[in-house]
Design a protein around this nucleic acid. Structure first.
Length: 426
RNA sequence: GGAGAGGUGGCAGAGUGGUUGAAUGCGGCGGUCUUGAAAACCGUUGAGGAUGCAAGUCCUCCGGGGGUUCGAAUCCCUCCCUCUCCGCCA
């Protein structure tokens, strides 16, 4: 949510930011409602002030033995007027906040302006020693072929049990997945100073609103109507909402959490070539990092967040590149975002495995997460950030494909071997 | 699923129609005392909004919503949540 004052005072800047994000601009509508709202407030408050004044007089007059019948009758009228004004005011405020909930966050000034993912900017690449984009021994098998051949992935049975997009990991594949999750969690705990959260996988509507998934992305969410709960699309939702409606201590900042969760996404209307195998699924596993920080540090924290995710890939020796998303490709709530993409030799392209974003105070405002500034003694909104550290499904594609041998076996990345208890699959 | 209790400031916890935005305690902040600290004592300490250059003035807020009343933390209705006990259960 944007600050209404910001919109009121810098409407042109806000319009530009929204336009750069390819979103519909309803700023004029907001300004109109805001003006009306303040008129109603002024009228209502004037009457309330009068009512308060007279109400304080009444007991005194009564004590003095005066007749107050006439005053009571007049105050009844005043009260009725107040009710009338407040009803109008509430309507206006409801409309206003409804529109505000659909206004995206503004891109940071360092974000390149662009229409779509085509205009994202590659920041850097990291390639393990001896890596080549040219595959040396014929054609690499893709993760689906490997999964089938090694009997570690089963997309068909997943489709039978649940539906398409619900992959099953079997045998050493299941162990490898679990090893990967544990490795990533341990790494962030031991080397990056996070503390671990194991969050609920179902959350309520307020939480979904707090991080910005609702109301705009309603169609992309699973929803358990009977209980009013939503399966989480990312651990960002429960972990960020841990501190909803809370005031944090400045000395505790930055608060850094890392947590594993399964992630559930409807991916409505996204069937097609992008959806084979692991490339787009309804359920996947992810280790998520979430930070609550002081505003002035948030862009530095964003760089550190990316670095934390990169460390995992370097330890796994998976080739990757970092993209800075352009304004048009930024998500609804993000002010700045880096994607990390890992290399798939079989697809012969990069696959998104992580997204690291700074939301500035956009989520904090929605979720009302504040801290007390020790110097000014004032409450301020924290800045929130989160990043995948990382999502396993796409990463698994890169691991299986990059670590395959000419015989179609898969070597377990050395850092994972103590977690798996075996060092080769097949 | 059944029964009961309860939701009040950063926290704990009073308050049951009219200077109660709210006693008291803890915590926080400032001070006195002290070489320093602790203790003790004194003072201070909620949020949001409207308006204003500012100082200030005003309004709202005691789980959410609605109602009664000139006036509601306090009375009524309704919804939500938390806790305890019983039942069921991994």
């Amino acid at each position: 949510m944007l600050d209404l004052k910001l919109i009121r005072e810098n409407p042109e800047k806000v319009k530009q930011g929204i336009a750069n994000k390819n979103e519909k601009d309803r700023v004029d509508e907001i300004l109109e409602l805001d003006k009306h709202r303040r008129e109603l407030i002024a009228q209502s408050e004037e009457l309330k002030s009068k009512r308060n004044q007279v109400s304080a007089e009444i007991p005194k007059l009564k004590k003095a033995g005066q007749d107050v019948t006439e005053i009571l009758a007049e105050m009844k009228k005043v009260s009725d007027s107040i009710t009338e004004l407040d009803v109008k005011l509430r309507e206006v405020e409801n409309q206003l906040s409804e529109i505000l909930m659909y206004i995206p966050n503004l891109p940071h000034e360092t974000v390149p302006v662009g229409k779509s993912s085509e205009e994202n900017v590659e920041v850097r690449q990291w390639l393990p020693e001896g890596f080549s984009f040219e595959w040396e021994n014929g054609k690499p098998l893709d993760h689906i072929e490997l999964g089938k051949k090694l009997n570690i992935l089963d997309f068909e049975r997943g489709a039978k049990v649940s539906g398409s997009g619900f992959p099953v990991y079997k045998g050493k594949g299941a162990t490898l997945e679990r090893a990967l999750i544990n490795f990533m969690l341990d790494y962030h705990l031991q080397h990056h100073g996070y503390s671990e959260i194991f969050p609920p996988f179902l959350v309520n509507r307020d939480s979904m609103r707090g991080t910005g998934q609702l109301p705009k992305m309603e169609e992309d969410m699973y929803h358990i109507e009977k209980d009013g709960l939503y399966p989480i699309p990312t651990a960002e939702v429960p972990i960020t909402n841990l501190h909803r409606e809370e005031i944090l201590n400045e000395k505790d900042l930055p608060v850094k959490y890392v947590g594993y969760s399964a992630c559930f996404r409807r991916e409505a209307g996204s069937y097609g070539k992008e959806s084979k195998g692991f490339l787009r699924v309804h359920q996947f596993n992810k280790v998520e990092m979430v930070k609550f920080v002081k505003p002035e540090t948030s862009y530095n924290e964003l760089e550190l967040l990316v670095k934390d995710a990169e460390d995992i890939l370097q330890a796994l020796k998976i080739p990757y590149r970092i993209l800075m998303l352009c304004t048009g490709d930024l998500s609804f709530a993000a002010a700045k975002c880096y994607d990390i993409e890992t290399w798939s030799p079989a697809e012969n392209r990069w696959l998104e495995a992580s997204s690291c974003s700074n939301f500035e105070d956009f989520q904090a405002r929605r979720a009302n997460i504040r801290f007390r500034n020790e110097q000014t003694k004032k409450l301020e909104f924290v800045h929130t950030l989160n990043g995948s550290g990382l999502a396993t499904s796409r990463l698994m594609v890169s691991i299986l494909e990059n670590y395959q041998t000419p015989e179609g076996k898969v070597i377990v990345p050395p850092v994972l071997q103590k977690y798996t208890g075996f060092n080769i699959i097949g």
